[in-house]
Design a protein around this nucleic acid. Sequence first.
DNA 1: AGTTTAAATGTAAGCGCTTACATTTAAAAA
DNA 2: TTTTTAAATGTAAGCGCTTACATTTAAACT
Lengths: 333, 333
Amino acid sequence: MATIYQVSELAGVSLATVSRVMNNNARVSDKTKEKVLSAMAELGYQPNAIAQSLASNCSNSVGVLVSELHGPFFGDMMSAIEQTLRSEGKHAIIASGHSNADTEQASIEFLISRKCDALILHVEAVSDVYLIDLAAKGVSFVLINRYIEQISTHCICLDNQQGGYLATQHVLDLQHAQVAYISGPSWKQDAQARLNGHKLALQDADIAFDNELVFEGDYQQQSGSAGLDALLGTGKAFSAIICANDEMASGVMTRARELNLDIPEQLSIVGFDNIIYASYLYPTLTTVDYPIFQMGKMAANYILAKTYDKSGLVLRDVFVPKLEVRQSSKLLA
Amino acid sequence: MATIYQVSELAGVSLATVSRVMNNNARVSDKTKEKVLSAMAELGYQPNAIAQSLASNCSNSVGVLVSELHGPFFGDMMSAIEQTLRSEGKHAIIASGHSNADTEQASIEFLISRKCDALILHVEAVSDVYLIDLAAKGVSFVLINRYIEQISTHCICLDNQQGGYLATQHVLDLQHAQVAYISGPSWKQDAQARLNGHKLALQDADIAFDNELVFEGDYQQQSGSAGLDALLGTGKAFSAIICANDEMASGVMTRARELNLDIPEQLSIVGFDNIIYASYLYPTLTTVDYPIFQMGKMAANYILAKTYDKSGLVLRDVFVPKLEVRQSSKLLA
DNA sequence: AGTTTAAATGTAAGCGCTTACATTTAAAAA
DNA sequence: TTTTTAAATGTAAGCGCTTACATTTAAACT
């Protein structure tokens, strides 16, 4: 592997000059630049990224921490991030936090120890205080899908409340007046916000909120099935059910089928996230679209702009969900 | 950020000694080790990974290249890889190749330029020759889901042919004698192998293979639907259909429903891969399990063993698929 | 006590770059 | 032509580690 030294020798210039043409951050005459470039070509020179990092104190790497690498989100998010970073010669280092505070913290520390220039975090368990602290320590990061007042400029969020509102409003528009809700874990911010949106929509329609019509699931498909059973078990009537994510909605569908409940004839279902498989289900699932790809891209752009000083990027920190109407919801007969 | 120098000063020893206790690859007396350790603790010392890499010529990073970051595979594979590497203090750098030769090649070069110690490749478009060359150049890598004779020790594969065989054998066992097949792109090795397995199973059952009952899809759900239409269009009768992956099987299901074809009453369907959503479909999909998690883990272990000299790892290079029987296939009435 | 030998520690030369600062070169001004 | 000034290039000191080799220390024999 050729080094900068050999290039400088072959080109008959100093190390510094070679470095200058590599980074072209300083003026070099066209003539010498030419010489250097051809020397590089001749030697098949590839700069040593590690040495560059050490000298420049910039690793060109961004740590990405998600809850689960295999979740329906991660792929799209990662795809967006990789693409965006890559186009600027940066790269992503990944880690998972498993929605566990200790693991998340350990992962963050791992990524920092790896000298990532910045982090993109999709964390749920670690405390606000920890993150505020992290920001105070000067760690550069952006938070996806979590809002913390004190470090609001680090947050890229979906308006989850609005999403919950849209979902409920949709079934309300379809004349459903008795609407059940399967929420995510109440300790998760997004789950709370979605449920809030639901309540708000009910309120705006002058429908009393009934706590018995809410079941707290865990975002897994299994808990959708369990939720339907529980809800049915209350004896309360409902003609529509909003699920805080698509996987639970899928669970509801499965269970409904087992119970010979026709969807959407007897029960309308609305999901949340619009994961790719939502449109493969039968019936296809009406859901609230979560623009995770765009958000991933924005997260990467934030970092490109803030950490790597790239200019000309339009930054946005709150994304708006939109309803994707499919077959699983219909006008109440 | 404290450096090794400050630690050595506080502990009253030399740089080398501090380095030794960090790497504990050389004998240091318990007494000094103690001093060093407490100095580290006192300073909150974190070794600089970049500097370590430069000096040791080992970046502790593994490049992972997949076709699509958002595919159904990637998540599981990545999850396994991250977990395995992480437990040994290594990390994964990701990239995608989009099943395009140039992009794949560029990605590989990108990862190499990033000084990855090894690569895990899930590539389809790049040529055998290129990969053989890469191995010859001394690049350390493992290939997932691709077999190349000359570099067989670099390959971790699923026995795709066996998988295809199992799928067809299953419907044959269910008395289906007319079996259609929707394959993946014929230029992809796994698609070929799966189809071969299908043919073999037919042959073993003394059923003539009929080329008209094969439709070449592209592994996307859409082409499953198109495939069903095409197959139906031939006028040939068939009571079962094998799909080379679950997404196309999902497409077949969707289209069958539109055509009022009852599944599995009128048509049995078998998929391949056993992606998580296969069990969320209706009816749940009988499919061939692709142990991608295990294979990802094995890929990481290979690298741990071969590149990082970790011992005590059991290595395996060919995985066996197994049938997952669900609702979409049934005994021919 | 003197010698041999191994263990513990220290010294210093890199690893391959970047960059502040010094120097040279050439263009512009006088 | 000489002086001023800016552009181009070079020099050399790091960046924070690892490690070959040298030296010191201490244990083990004579």
